[in-house]
Amino acid sequence: MFLAFAGPNLLLISVFIYFPLLSNAYYSTLNWRMGSTSATSAGIDNYVRLFTSPQGAEMWRVTITFTVVTVLASMVLGLLVALALNHRIPGITAGRTAIFSPYVLSGVGVGMVWNFIFDPQLGVLGHVLRSFGASSPEWYLDPDLALVMVIVVYVWKNLGFCAVVFLAGLQSIPSDLIEAARIDRAGALRRFFRLTLPLLSPTVFFLTVTNILSSMQAFDILKIMTPSGNGTNTIVFELFLQGFGPYQNAGYAAAISVVLFVVLFAITAFQMRFVEKRVHYA
């Protein structure tokens, strides 16, 4: 009876989640072009390449930069917005809804909208810069600027999520604690750093982990704004380009998949097992 209810789902999970993990581990040891019927053994060459080749090093540099900056920026801006939202004033719910909304929108659509804004000739950003006498940077030609651009758009899409989660954290802080600090004549900044922020540490921890996971899986915006990668090849984008893009390098893509899984799994397991117990309420 149990299997009649849970069986179909378990079968699907086995075939499309667990089996791929195993077969990827095997493919990753092959020197194999996508679509080719023959492959030669590559041993651990694909992994060596992933960690030692210039191409691999570039992927890690971009992945780490993108992840660290998007996570920090979304969380700092999200916290500031949450502090502003944490007032009992009319219209606050509508504000919350509007600020959260980009998080649920299609990354493809969002990328297209921002392509139009960043376009150096026709984009509104360039027009604004020109009206101040500056000229628009070549966002799409310079790899460093391209990375800045996709980071800005990703943070734009993500910060409402952080704001709403922080807001829930703020609202769970007993108001008499804050009130007591106010009566003790603690200043606003002091109240924030000595009281509010420590009390928010579980929320900060949760958001750090979930944001790292989602930033490392970013794809839609990167693909739409820089279609074949240009200083924006984070791990998942590189996996796509290697396996399904111009390179058709299935063995190497499989090695990236295995490493991606190991890294993300380790971060999640770390969260569940270890640190969660060590985050202290102030």
């Binding site: 989640i17 791929p20 077969s23 990827n24 493919y27 996971l213 998949s257």
Partner: peptide, 13 residues
């Protein structure tokens, strides 16, 4: 399974 990123299963799928 909740912790497996879907992108990691792309190629075999």
């Amino acid at each position: 399974a909740l912790m497996v990123p879907p992108e990691a299963a792309l190629l075999p799928n």
